[in-house]
Design a protein around this nucleic acid. Structure first.
Lengths: 259, 259
DNA sequence: CGTTTGTTTGACGTTACTCAAATCTCGTGG
DNA sequence: CCACGAGATTTGAGTAACGTCAAACAAACG
């Protein structure tokens, strides 16, 4: 009783402040862990509908999941990102949504047994607040994405993506002087589906931002932000913050704790 | 003690099954009502940020609110609709979002005092479930909207809107034979912001759907759906249901109860 | 080394945007 | 009841941007 389960010992959902499992008592954690299922998903793989039918509630420990929709004419769309720390509840979701989740990077998820999850929410006010806030943040992020999708030019959409994702995916960020480099873990093909444009246009938009002097793209998808303020202007963003990450305080960020 | 407050007696949030206040005990309702604030908002008017600072939690009794975002270049976007039955929680929302809510039709909202709201969630499991489900549905709707926004052609977007909204705004629907008429309460200018296109394009898209024989637009924004299946094809919708409204069971619909 | 998959480039077509003007709608006041 | 005016819708012509298709190129993998 009361010892930290080995599966949770190094799991970000438990170790990171502000994440769901970090506020559970030792007993709660032990019980919830004992009835949960963990899964590592490789990029490109999808969560199966039959599996999600039994496990519709999960937390994302690491990586990025995409919510894919397929049009009748074969065009695909990534309607949302699900990111580390998100508590996802698909109970009551339309069935197409259950078959639409796929890993865009390597993803680790922890499926929470629904009744045990509910029991935790019932008793633990802090956990309830975190789960609620996570749902809120998912909505707020989608509002930002929708606003980005209705932007006119492809380069604006891409500039917005870079500005936003720089904050959300902070582990690989290296800051040196005023230059800043981070790794874009997505294929252009997925980025295209996410931004509502074609892969060729993504490629041309990257070039366009480079020629404007806002960024430089190095190999293996390393993106160097050369002029952050210019990038913000190119994003036509009236609300993205320039220097402080204050805007993103409510989007939980994976920053390196130590180094 | 225990009598229904007059303000709630005819409020849909209380009288409609599945809406938040319908599962409150008489005592809970009376107390929550006594610390709540009601407001009627005229089309075009916005909720003020200072007011939402004090009242960030509210339910929508009637009408449609739009979440507006403004680009740097003056272009506006309606990133989401908030519809009757929605429980909205803007605590922790970025401040731009607080200043971005405006009424697209005549709207009646009921602001719930946050601590009293929390107290209800704490004690009433049914209310907690409804509030949670409402948040979920807001996310699910946004996923559908995002998928629609990334559609290629304007006529597809508009066809999707008609298919979707036909279910969400059921009060004015009149069904006769296979023909179906409903009132579109939005200005084309708002529709344009919602679908990420320009008002001129909305106008041309309506004409395009008419010429295809899918709909007919009558005066005062009455839309007659002539060929529902054709409309679905034009929406390039692989997931919208053709005849049964099963797809929309989880989107709470305002259907006439009596007549 | 060959296969597969993803990215880039170029030429071309289509679509929606832009801008301007005409028309319509509806509320207001004469 | 009609005239007026503000705002919205519609229409048209020209342009800018992205989509489309095809081919070359690069990267990852066995």
């Amino acid at each position: 009783m009361g010892t930290i389960p080995t599966a949770c010992a190094k799991c970000p959902l438990h170790t990171r402040a502000g994440y769901f499992c970090s506020v559970l008592s030792a007993d709660e954690l032990e019980h919830l862990s004992s009835v949960s299922t963990r899964q590592a998903i490789q990029p490109g793989d999808s969560l199966t509908e039959t599996f999600l039918d039994s496990w519709p509630v999960f937390g994302i420990a690491d990586g990025v999941l995409g919510v894919r929709r397929h049009d009748a004419d074969g065009r695909a769309t990534i309607a949302a990102f699900l990111v580390p720390g998100d508590i996802v509840d698909l109970r009551g979701a339309p069935s197409e949504m259950l078959s639409s989740l796929s890993a865009l990077t390597e993803v680790r998820v922890c499926y929470l047994e629904p009744r045990a999850f509910e029991a935790v929410l019932e008793k633990n006010a802090a956990a309830r607040k975190i789960a609620w806030t996570s749902l809120q943040q998912q909505s707020f992020r989608m509002i930002e994405q929708t606003a980005a999708l209705s932007k006119k030019r492809a380069s604006e959409k891409l500039a917005w993506f870079i500005c936003t994702f720089r904050h959300m995916h902070g582990r690989d960020i290296q800051v040196s002087q005023s230059a800043e480099v981070f790794r874009n873990p997505f294929r252009n093909i997925d980025l295209a589906d996410y931004l509502g444009i074609r892969p060729e246009t993504v490629s041309r938009a990257f070039r366009s931002l480079e020629e404007a002097g806002a960024i430089k793209v190095h190999r293996s998808n390393l993106i160097q932000v050369i002029d952050r303020n210019l990038l913000l202007v190119l994003a036509s963003a009236s609300s993205l913050s320039a220097d402080s990450p204050a805007e993103f305080d409510n989007i939980r960020v994976l920053l390196p704790t130590g180094s």
